[in-house]
Write a protein that binds this DNA or RNA. Structure first.
Lengths: 214, 214
DNA sequence: GTGGTCTTTTACCAAATGGTCAACTTAACG
DNA sequence: CGTTAAGTTGACCATTTGGTAAAAGACCAC
């Protein structure tokens, strides 16, 4: 947001110093831990400072406030989050494309559960800080993906359904394993949730989309 | 928790007074608003007090603290939340039973979005206050439901799949419309999300479970 | 209406929290 | 090695927040 220039403390021409890069990275990493676990209002600068191994004033030397840390985190997150959807290829084999998308989404949930929870927290709270991103970045992407899927349906290459609800269901089912881990853990004790999830979702979307239906 | 007796202020034999019932209800209602929107730590007693139309000390006359309000809310929620799953009838027509369950779950999301978000917040945070309920109430219910579904699969009446992941996917897809409403709203502008959701989910689970697959 | 109980409020507190500032230390570089 | 800018910190502050004490007010049975 704002000037978005990280060189606020260094000379004009040069980029951020070695120390700046290291400490900013530490803060972001610590903040991801804390924000994803407690939400924005539940997180404290003291917690972030402790986890980052820095003093609180030192953190405020690198970021102008709690809010800026959170916004920075969300901005970084959006890029990574939208990447899989960008790779949906209109020229690919439809079912294979969608299944690949499902698997990528699921892997992201498993590899980056904190990011998933951070995002979930933000949306749950009504997206107060990320709403512009949803309009500007996410919506066009979803519109494009929906058009691609609709094209496949019109060509009779996958079974007809509402593309947008299809996308929602993929998000919901994949992110569920990260966002509701506390619940999944209790109910799947002993069983391997991860392997089962990929097999289940592959089956679900294969049966849903095979083109000999309608 | 504790004695769980609401008559802490009234005479031994009698139940809670008319005023107690009214004010407790107001507090619970206000707290549902505030907790579901901001999470436990993000909510303040002042916000709850204002929305309830009572003073803060007056609220603490009816509840011993912020935590007790939250726990009371979660306890009430669990009953309503688990009801649909209890109605899954092993002797019913399998596909119809599951579709009915899906529709009931979806209707609950639409009718009680605040409750859905309250629950999502709690689980996201690691279920610190509701973990016992998950073990004691939810788990046995899910075990029973999974057994019922497995029975249907073994009898060849629905297509084979993992019952537990099936249940997770139903929760995820239905609650998504309440918990991620801020996102769904942006992406579905103009379109009617509600109607589309029921049709989509009916199609999804019909195709998933029709017994001529394996 | 009077006595006693239930309910509500005013005033207050201690702890937590986001943030500031001036002084101090460390790194960079000619 | 000395000077300058970058980086760090202890002390501090204002506000918010969960919670308390005690007195005042409302309600009810008699």
């Amino acid at each position: 947001m704002g000037e978005s220039d990280a060189t606020q403390h260094t000379a004009e021409g040069a980029g951020p110093s070695r120390i700046q890069r290291r400490n900013r990275a530490r803060i972001i990493e610590a903040a991801l831990d804390v924000f994803s676990q407690h939400g924005f209002r539940g997180a404290t600068l003291d917690q972030i400072a402790e986890r980052a191994g820095l003093s609180k004033p030192n953190i405020l030397y690198y970021f102008t406030g709690k809010e800026e840390i959170h916004v920075t985190l969300l901005n970084q997150l959006m890029d990574r989050w939208l990447a899989p959807l960008r790779r949906l290829d209109p020229d690919g084999e439809p079912l294979e494309e969608i299944l690949t998308y499902v698997r990528r989404k699921l892997k992201m949930s498993q590899k980056y559960p904190r990011e998933s929870r951070l995002f979930a927290n933000e949306i749950l709270q009504g997206a107060p800080r990320i709403a512009p991103h949803l309009e500007d970045d996410l919506k066009p992407l979803v519109d494009a993906a929906a058009a691609t899927i609709q094209g496949w349906i019109d060509a009779g290459r996958i079974a007809p359904t509402d593309p947008r609800h299809l996308i929602f269901s993929i998000w919901a089912t994949t992110q569920h394993y990260a966002d509701f881990e506390a619940q999944v853990g209790v109910l799947m004790e002993g069983r391997a949730a991860t392997d089962g999830a990929e097999r289940f979702l592959t089956t679900l979307y294969t049966r849903m989309l095979r083109s000999d239906q309608g």
